[in-house]
Design a protein around this nucleic acid. Sequence first.
DNA 1: TATGAATGAGGATTCATTCAT
DNA 2: GATGAATGAATCCTCATTCAT
Lengths: 229, 229, 229, 229
Amino acid sequence: MANPELIPDSTSATALAGRSEPRWERRKQDRPGEIIAAALELFVERGYAATRLEDVAARAGVSKGTVYLYFANKHELFKSVVRRGIVSPLAQVNDMLSGYRGPMMELLRLLLRGWWTQIGSTQLAGIPKLVIAEARNFPEIAEFYYSEVVQPGTTLFRRIVERGIAEGEFRATDPEALAQIVMAPMLIISLWRSSLGAGRPGTMNPEQLLDTHLDLLQSALAAGKSGHE
Amino acid sequence: MANPELIPDSTSATALAGRSEPRWERRKQDRPGEIIAAALELFVERGYAATRLEDVAARAGVSKGTVYLYFANKHELFKSVVRRGIVSPLAQVNDMLSGYRGPMMELLRLLLRGWWTQIGSTQLAGIPKLVIAEARNFPEIAEFYYSEVVQPGTTLFRRIVERGIAEGEFRATDPEALAQIVMAPMLIISLWRSSLGAGRPGTMNPEQLLDTHLDLLQSALAAGKSGHE
Amino acid sequence: MANPELIPDSTSATALAGRSEPRWERRKQDRPGEIIAAALELFVERGYAATRLEDVAARAGVSKGTVYLYFANKHELFKSVVRRGIVSPLAQVNDMLSGYRGPMMELLRLLLRGWWTQIGSTQLAGIPKLVIAEARNFPEIAEFYYSEVVQPGTTLFRRIVERGIAEGEFRATDPEALAQIVMAPMLIISLWRSSLGAGRPGTMNPEQLLDTHLDLLQSALAAGKSGHE
Amino acid sequence: MANPELIPDSTSATALAGRSEPRWERRKQDRPGEIIAAALELFVERGYAATRLEDVAARAGVSKGTVYLYFANKHELFKSVVRRGIVSPLAQVNDMLSGYRGPMMELLRLLLRGWWTQIGSTQLAGIPKLVIAEARNFPEIAEFYYSEVVQPGTTLFRRIVERGIAEGEFRATDPEALAQIVMAPMLIISLWRSSLGAGRPGTMNPEQLLDTHLDLLQSALAAGKSGHE
DNA sequence: TATGAATGAGGATTCATTCAT
DNA sequence: GATGAATGAATCCTCATTCAT
């Protein structure tokens, strides 16, 4: 049996264009893709255990048995949902990075804003909630997410910060903690949109939040250079 | 039947003293308290659905039937766990605030460090994960958490910021977004400790993270004052 | 959890008395015993897979869930049925043997007739069919039955035969094959009664069959002594 | 639709020659024959319910749908397997009998040894286990097996015995019981080979068993003539 | 109060069967 | 004829909940 969730997305030329559609659009006859999309919605809405396979099937427009045609069991379906939900964002980020030249602060701005248009505003924003909620019950997923998202993400931002410091753009600060602080608002936005904020539109303005966050970072990192001299 | 989870915690004189024990310690023969404590552990570890009442009973050292003596059903037990997990932190925060006089930046430092010793480093840090994971299935809990924690918390920090700006301590910034940014690392720490980071000690240094966060805030908010003049 | 099927039958003073009741009668409140008895009937009637746990529960007069209170799953219930169905006959046989003194031919007669009254004419006669039908799917049961019934049984009869030969009562014959031949009619009777013959009363006369078998054995083994001289 | 299982086997000239190949060899493109052969193996190995049609199809080298091209459903496939497994042996026996002249004891020896080479040592030996295990769930098969195998077989051996007695070759004995005793070892061998003994090569020596059986019969029946006079 | 045996609704999973291609 | 994707009835099993003691 083929592992449909591992089929890489063909291309991503438009990655920086700001489309809000997920990269892995539902193609005609892409049964596993349709099932994963339906499962993502329901898992995010209700959580793993409260999601019945029958509902996933119904939302995907197939029968219960069809789900088992493509996924060995609920556990595997969940893992496929998360894997695909991780693979796709990673590709987006790589797109954002490729060939960047310029100030580090500008890169941070590009990444956070790109994250919002490519990921944060899409269904993919539901993945962190899923992973956080089920990490204890899915050690494999936790390990996967840690090594494929958390670590690379932290490393990415740490390197940007380190480069900024090295080039005199930023003042000296603990890079590890700084990287975590830079990423924090993205997590807050994801979680809010897929959890408490789900029924409360207007309670959070993600773009405003990200912009304020970037402004503060710029001030803090620039200020440090002269302010402490 | 009494609602044990609503019994207020006796006193809180030692709130700022830095104890790491939860305020609602298990008293002798405090059956409901023991059950709630056991339930909190298991709910955080496994999630709501994956936690069996039988295991809660076993961990509390009582029988399955006894749980139903104090809680109408699993739903109510969960709500009691979260309510008590919220009531307690709120009391702590109020303690931290009462009678503060001094610079706002110092108050922020006091609050975040106090949060770590009083809440973040205790079992109570598991509550946010619970609420985030089950918000969709427990609208009542979501509403409760939103109105009792999120809104008051945001308001609290917003007012501090506004006062800091008014008094010339901070530069002008969007207070709502800033409040969310100030709180973000506390959420990140809570979630990390109760989810992905559970089996990965040493991957996060909360106190370092909070300190760096506070330093950046200080730089950013102070920098602004002159930087934009 | 206690292993109810391993609780030894209290006594067996009446072992040779020819009761047709199973030794492990259903005691008041012996839930597991009642469930095993019901399961034995249904497994023999329909086979393992075609027996629904719900039907077992219904025949035992309990609910579905109660079955799982005493047996981890269908597999374990089946194993318990077979184990108890083996333990009991073994005790019977030991009773028949204890303290026997006399001619070996008489012992064979005693064993086969005792088998009929104690086992062959009771529900226990259904066990061999179960084991034969499911041996491939239950290697553990197969191993258990082989080492606890087939081997000891063959050894028992082989020793009787060998002793008969040594004492000049029987003529020399291959003891292993002879033991299998001596036992064969018991298996034929068991299988007939629990399978093809179930709806065909009168098609087999087990006592007549055993008597004829014993007569033939007597003739064959005695004849040999002089016939080959 | 043709009933492929009723197509008679072409010839049987070599019936007494001792081939160990089944008579109904798989001919080129004999789809139903291939499916039945695969089904026989799996039914014997696992039992009726535990055999999945998909596995039968796979072993026969066809697709699941193809099975339904030739057999209305699983039930019918099973009946076809058993019918063909019965038709074939019956033809073998008839071959063994045709034109026999000589002592009855010699005929018994011929039949039992012929049974071993033609049936007992082949896959056909699995049929009795199948029939015994599923008799209750397949009354039609039970009836068929009873009327086509058990009754004719018993009648055959009864007549041989009666003739032996009438001609003074054997001593007087209950012919019905005797017939059953004569046949018993064949059943024991079949069941052993297809069940408990499947993973235990060397635990039974069928030819030795049959020879000992025949020797005992000869002694018993001959001895009787003079021994009881 | 406290217990734990008993219940049965709910949901994951299997697999015989169908049918469009 | 042949295929195998799709279906959904059937059944195992879990666990929240009840209640007699």
